[in-house]
Amino acid sequence: MIIQKEYKFYAAHRNEELDDKCSNLHGHRYGLRCFFEVKRSGALSTLFGDFDAKIDPYLKDQYDHGMLIHTGDSLYATLQDHMQRTGERFKLKVLDGPTSVENLAHKMFTEITEMGFRLQQLEVRETDTSVVTYTRDDWDEHNRDMAAEQAAATS
């Protein structure tokens, strides 16, 4: 059985690898649509509130009104230096790769799965007309590729 839940958060980002408007710092109202695989036992499977109790606070703490940033972005080092010098703190959600919606979908799929939920699919909406659909098969493939890359790097 599939239970579907939707969430929203606001975040800034830029994709420093692009040579267009997206290389500039800007923000989005991101939308998430989660498709959870659940097992029914008795009259119900999982309460909607069980998802909200973990995911809502996590999004507020880690993502909402923060900045998505890639460790390889030169702005990351600048912001780290600024925070160290001034004591000012920014909410930075650090990604291992560019802050594309595709990379964000992988990161969020991983994080929600680590909360103990089984996702079948995750849709990440960057704008009203731009959505990435990321499936369990995509996640499994990505993780296999990453494991193979790590194995090759250590041999």
Rank of each mutant, 00 (worst) to 15 (best):
F36S: 03
E37A: 10
V38P: 02
K39C: 06
K39N: 14
R40A: 10
G42E: 08
G42F: 01
A43I: 08
A43Y: 09
L44V: 10
L44Q: 10
L44E: 14
S45C: 02
S45Y: 07
L47D: 15
G49R: 07
G49Y: 00
D50W: 01
F51D: 01
F51S: 01
D52Q: 04
D52W: 01
D52N: 08
A53D: 01
I55V: 05
D56Q: 08
D56H: 06
D56G: 00
D56S: 09
D56Y: 07
D56I: 12
P57M: 10
L59S: 02
L59G: 05
K60C: 01
K60F: 00
D61C: 06
D64F: 03
D64V: 07
D64M: 01
G66F: 00
M67W: 04
M67L: 11
M67H: 04
M67G: 06
L68P: 05
L68M: 12
L68C: 04
I69A: 11
T71A: 14
G72E: 15
D73M: 07
L75Y: 12
A77E: 15
A77Y: 11
A77P: 06
T78K: 15
Q80K: 12
D81W: 04
D81M: 06
H82R: 09
H82T: 06
H82C: 08
M83V: 02
